[in-house]
Nucleic acid binder design. Sequence first.
DNA 1: ATGGTCGCCGAGCGA
Length: 266
Amino acid sequence: MKIASFNINGIKARLPLVQDWLGEAAPDVAILQEIKTIDETFPRAVFEDMGYNVETHGQKSFNGVALLSKLPLEDVTRGLPGAKGAGREGVDDEEARYIEATVVGEHAVRICGLYLPNGNPAPGPKYDYKLRWMERLHARAEALLAQEECFLMAGDFNVIPQAEDAARPEAWEKDALYLPQTRQAFRRLLNLGLTDALRARTQAPELYTFWDFQRGAWARNDGIRIDHILLSPQCADLLEDVQIDKNIRAREKPSDHVPIWVSLAA
DNA sequence: ATGGTCGCCGAGCGA
């Protein structure tokens, strides 16, 4: 089972690219972030015509996540539990950043798609929200780990885990993506027993998933690795391959992120 | 130090 994550930075602007990529990469499951639209205007029929089941958790203009799957998406939940002032219709967050569903192939895999808050500027209320959100994600991971089943958390974590995950780490020292507290919260997630799929397979440097639109970052390969797929122990047992589709960044009208995917014996 | 670029939508914010 091939499972891919891609921050598309707006589905309206990215539809041709996403269609081309899905046709070529043919993931069984695609986890999308920053759809930047409401559920009603997400072009679900385009993906249904390509053989995908579609579940979205959108909002107007910002954020928004979606799951596409060739197999049925079961037990879909929207929103990360634990927000202060949780409320509307079972959704636990003002910002649409989290969706879960189960896909059943040879094994059942719980898919957790997430768009973690950027957190800049730090310090400040946005950084506080990011750290609280990471605590809530930690709690959700603990709850899922207690079930001892196969699950993965994938998406745009907005975390540069280590210096080798940035072309110029010194440029990020005061940034919410790389501050010590941010990286500690990410390590705490891994220390629960989750596996960073990419780092389980390679320690190679310069494996980036994001290049800023500004300053010719792509042309200079001034990238960072902030899109991650974390595997539960039962899921890590099934890991066959992990890759970053770097070539997608060189296309017409690219996103600033590229896809990352795992292949599981599931 | 600043500005540089995108996408959302139709001004300015978020990244």
